[in-house]
């Protein structure tokens, strides 16, 4: 059982990173807005995953994206921030805190509204810290906030679409 879930996570990691690096990194909406899809990997980890596993996975996911974006460390730091706030936000949003070992935050488990709130909050944290780190000398805060909100909007749309696609694949 453990081996199966490791295999599943590895496959998911490769697919999500492939989509991010090969397709989404080439998209620059309006000149400079790129949707970030790879946080989905951290969002989808089972609720009961140990804290240190989440942090380490977040660090290496970010680092892998950095390798292909010439931004060494920036995505790693942003993804770490996101992973750090994940347990707090799960506790904030749900009444019960104990889940079965393998349960993941998915639409057929938690419902659409819960998943949307959870995604929006964590993606906002991720994008805000990413842009703050990226430009920490140059831009005004308003500029960063605007960029964060627009980019986060696109990222959330793509992640929610993926959730719906995965949900229907599970039922059939």
């Amino acid at each position: 059982m453990i081996e199966y879930s490791t295999l599943k996570q590895t496959g998911r990691f490769i697919i999500i990173l492939g989509i991010q690096i090969l397709i989404l990194n080439q998209i620059h909406l309006g000149g400079y807005i790129t949707p970030f899809f790879y946080p989905l990997f951290i969002l989808l980890l089972p609720f009961q995953t140990k804290g240190y596993v989440v942090l380490l996975l977040a660090f290496f996911t970010g680092l892998a994206v950095d390798m292909f974006s010439n931004s060494l460390g920036m995505h790693a730091a942003a993804t770490l921030f996101m992973a750090f706030f994940r347990p707090g936000i799960i506790r904030l949003l749900s009444i019960k805190t104990e889940f079965e070992p393998e349960v993941e935050p998915r639409i057929h488990v938690m419902g659409k509204v819960w998943i949307l709130t959870y995604t929006v909050m964590l993606i906002f944290i991720h994008h805000l810290s990413l842009f703050l780190i990226e430009v920490f000398r140059f831009y005004e805060l308003g500029e960063i906030l605007a960029k964060t909100i627009i980019s986060a909007g696109f990222s959330v749309i793509i992640i929610m679409l993926t959730h719906f696609l995965m949900g229907s694949a599970r039922k059939t």
Binding site: F59, D66, L72, G73, M74, A76, A77, L80, I133
Partner: peptide, 9 residues
């Protein structure tokens, strides 16, 4: 980990 990331940056 955050310190490591910032060192890299």
């Amino acid at each position: 980990l955050q310190v490591v990331a910032f060192m890299l940056i």
